[in-house]
Amino acid sequence: MRVTVKLFARLRDIAGSPELARDVAPGATIGSVWRELAREFPELARYERSISSAVNTDYARMDHVLSDGDEVAFLPPVSGG
């Protein structure tokens, strides 16, 4: 199945794109999509514990199981003021 990955702030810079499409196996979770991305873009790995994630505009945890066509968003915290 296919999911769309949306990346924000620094994560977008690292991956060089705000949006990626990825084929994933049935049963894939937000966490497994993230780890796959982190293998592709190793610099992402250190953000794992700090990011929040969402599926189809709802905040969701890393163990959330994805469905075909889902949009997964990864957001690092930002602190500027």
Binding site: A9, R10, R46, Y47, R49, S50, S52, Y59, P76, P77, V78, S79
Partner: peptide
Amino acid sequence: LYPEPPPPGLV
């Protein structure tokens, strides 16, 4: 939303 702060220097 963000239970854990990022490690210093990451963001």
